[in-house]
Structures are given as structure tokens and as C-alpha cells.
Design a protein around this nucleic acid. Structure first.
Length: 222
DNA sequence: TCCGAGATTCACT
DNA sequence: GTGAATCTCGGAG
């Protein structure tokens, strides 16, 4: 149950993003990610994040310095870094800190708030590109799967939420202080509501506990 | 419910 | 040539 009303919230200013990456990763929890596309507005509450810390962090795409792929990570904080991986998925990050440091926060999960029907269409009706990874018609889930699990499956992972919000190559580098994709402020959560763990899916830098999530939220990826 | 494998592209070494 | 900040399905238990 979300008591926060999106229409009363203000867009995060540039200054929010020009701070330490770990602080931002924690404070992004509970804030509202807004995506406007073709006159529609899609909104999700951020419920899971991971920090990636440039040259300090062997798990970071920026660890070995600037390349064609990661150049957006080195922009000033408050840009969107969208990368392509595993041959078929996109993931979105919020670039953090001053220009040139190469740090970012991966958005790992959202709780859908607005535009849920369009999110569902984006997730399950756009199967033309990767038919083999969508073997069955999973927008018609088996009867034994509950409606909650369908809703949860919309945005409970970094690639899922990108598909739901239509964030791909074109969105790489978008300025989050603009009007296409942005984040609305919301109260910072108390530490008691935030869980911490090792980051998911990496092979190097595993020992760092730089994953953050809202305890008990159904959209947290695991 | 859990676990393993396959999918498929592309920047980097 | 390699392997990746993932997801999905199917088969086993």
C-alpha cells in the first residue's frame, strides 16, 4: 500500500545526484521513477538498488576506465546509463557523482504505480524480437498462477523493469533532470526498513554489501 | 518449489 | 574468441 501521491512530488534536482553513490543508492529507495512515452506516463516506486563504484570496484563496468560502452557512466550525476547484456536484455542505472568518476546505481526492481496495463503490454506482447526466449504465451499464465504473481513479475528485476518501461538503447544518456525520464522525491526511508546484501549476478567484487532493498516488498527480485 | 540450461548480441581483450 | 550487473521454461523432487 502506497500512501504517497505521485502528483504531489517534486522532481529530484541535479544536486541529489552529485553525492556519494552509496548514499544515493539507499535514498533512491521509495522514490518514484517516471517514464513518459507517447503521451503515456509510467510510474514505479524504486524498491531495490545496487551501487557500482568505478575504479574502486572490479564489478563496475567503469573499473577499467572509459570505453565506448560505458562512456555515459562518466557523465555528471543525474544521467541514465542503459546497457545491453546477455545478448537480449537492457538494464538501467542512475549515474552518480561528479563528471569523470564513473559511478552509478543500478535500478533492480520497481513497484508499479501507474500505467500498469501498458507495462504489461511492453513485457508480454512485444515478443517479435526474441521468440525463442518467450516460448509460450506467458501473458496467458497457467491458471494455477495467482494474479499477484503476474503483477509481481512485471518489474521485479533490472531487465524486466527496462522492458516494462520501454528503456533501451535510445534512452542511454538521457538527462534525468529533463521531462522524458525522471525521479520524483519522496521521504527517505528509515534504516530499519532497508535491507542490505551482496550484489547479485556478479563474479568479482562479491564481498561488497552494496545491494539495498525495501524489506518485505513483494517486488524485490529475491 | 527449486535448479539447470539455453537464449542471443556485441564490446572488449 | 569470450563472457556478460538476466530471464524463462521444463523437469525433478
Amino acid at each position: 500500500v502506497t500512501l504517497i501521491r505521485t502528483e504531489n512530488l517534486k522532481k529530484l534536482p541535479r544536486s541529489f545526484y552529485l553525492r556519494p553513490t552509496i548514499v544515493i543508492a539507499r535514498e533512491l529507495l521509495g522514490k518514484h521513477l517516471v517514464r513518459t512515452v507517447k503521451g503515456a506516463t509510467l510510474v514505479g516506486r524504486i524498491v531495490e538498488t545496487e551501487a557500482y563504484r568505478g575504479k574502486l570496484d572490479p564489478a563496475s563496468h567503469a573499473y577499467r576506465g572509459r570505453t565506448l560502452r560505458n562512456e555515459v557512466m562518466f557523465k555528471e550525476g543525474g544521467h541514465l546509463y542503459v546497457y545491453f547484456t546477455y545478448g537480449m536484455h537492457f538494464c538501467s542505472n542512475v549515474v552518480t557523482g561528479t563528471e569523470g568518476i564513473g559511478e552509478a546505481v543500478l535500478i533492480r526492481a520497481l513497484e508499479p504505480l501507474e500505467g500498469i496495463e501498458l507495462m504489461a503490454r511492453n513485457r508480454f506482447e512485444d515478443r517479435a524480437r526474441h521468440p525463442s526466449n518467450h516460448k509460450s504465451t506467458n501473458h496467458h499464465l497457467p491458471a494455477h498462477q495467482s494474479p499477484t504473481s503476474q503483477l509481481t513479475n512485471l518489474t521485479n528485476g533490472p531487465a524486466k523493469l527496462c522492458q516494462a518501461l520501454g528503456m533501451e538503447r535510445k534512452e542511454n544518456g538521457v538527462d534525468l533532470t529533463g521531462n522524458e525520464i525522471y525521479i520524483l522525491n519522496a521521504p527517505t526511508l528509515p534504516a530499519s526498513q532497508i535491507g542490505t546484501s551482496e550484489r547479485i549476478g556478479i563474479t568479482k567484487g562479491k564481498e561488497k554489501k552494496w545491494r539495498f532493498y525495501i524489506k518485505g516488498n513483494a517486488w524485490v527480485s529475491r
